[in-house]
């Protein structure tokens, strides 16, 4: 897990050469090509300020770093993160703003990356699980508490739950069990690990107050 979550190790891993994701990008599987329009034609048909429907160059601020991507306006932030920027902590599960597996922070507020257009995420501070899960080789209190409390089973919902839990604790450092239940109402776990997740959040709250890598 630490290699996946630690940005420095991820960079090194990417340096090892061939990856399936890189291959898919290389042969252009992820992006459709826009119909060719002469610049004059495009100008004549499009009012000022209107972009697309073909690819548009954008810059996103992700985990404190500016990152460039080229997206059609219809591409979601989640797909840009996963398919173009190789930031795969946020998972694509329902893709309809229901399950929470794609949760990221947008200006500190937990949000569904599947229901935000990438082009609409410009100018905002996007934090994915990669941005806080590990620092200085140590897991974030929420991550450690998930491990301690066996708060995952198949693990697909886990990154989303960790992001939602961090956002919840940022705003509610001293929660009750009922508040935790309510505060994680935007995430689903089909394995049914809710009890472990809620215990983990309560433990993380204590760890964060104790100054343990909060």
């Amino acid at each position: 897990m630490s290699e996946i979550l630690d940005p420095e190790k991820r960079e090194k891993r990417k340096g090892r050469g061939f990856s399936r994701r890189g291959f898919m990008q290389g042969i252009g599987v992820t992006g459709a090509v826009a119909p060719a329009l002469l610049p004059e034609q495009a100008q004549a048909q499009t009012p000022p300020g209107v972009m697309g429907p073909g690819p548009v160059a954008i810059t996103l601020n992700i985990n404190g770093k500016p990152m460039k991507a080229t997206v059609e306006p219809r591409e979601t932030l989640l797909d840009t993160l996963r398919n173009q920027l190789d930031i795969t902590g946020a998972k694509r599960v329902c893709d309809r703003g229901t399950c929470g597996a794609c949760s990221v922070l947008v200006n500190g507020k937990v949000s569904y990356a599947c229901s935000i257009l990438a082009i609409d995420a410009q100018g905002k501070q996007i934090t994915t699980i990669e941005g806080f899960a590990m620092s200085g080789g140590k897991p974030h209190a929420v991550v450690q508490a998930f491990v301690n409390n066996d708060a995952q089973q198949c693990g697909y919902c886990t990154p989303g739950f960790v992001v939602a839990s961090k956002a919840f604790l940022d705003h509610n450092p001293n929660p009750t069990y009922e508040q935790v239940k309510d505060g994680l109402g935007g995430n689903l776990c089909r394995c049914g690990t809710y009890v472990g997740v809620r215990k983990a959040v309560l433990e993380a709250a204590k760890m964060m107050k104790g100054g343990s890598n909060a």
Binding site: A34, V50, G52, I119
Partner: peptide, 18 residues
């Protein structure tokens, strides 16, 4: 999802014109 044009106007007037 079908491709679409996108605009993010700053005023209501601009938005209504689109």
């Amino acid at each position: 999802m079908q491709a679409f044009e996108y605009a993010s106007p700053k005023t209501l007037k601009e938005a209504l014109a689109l």
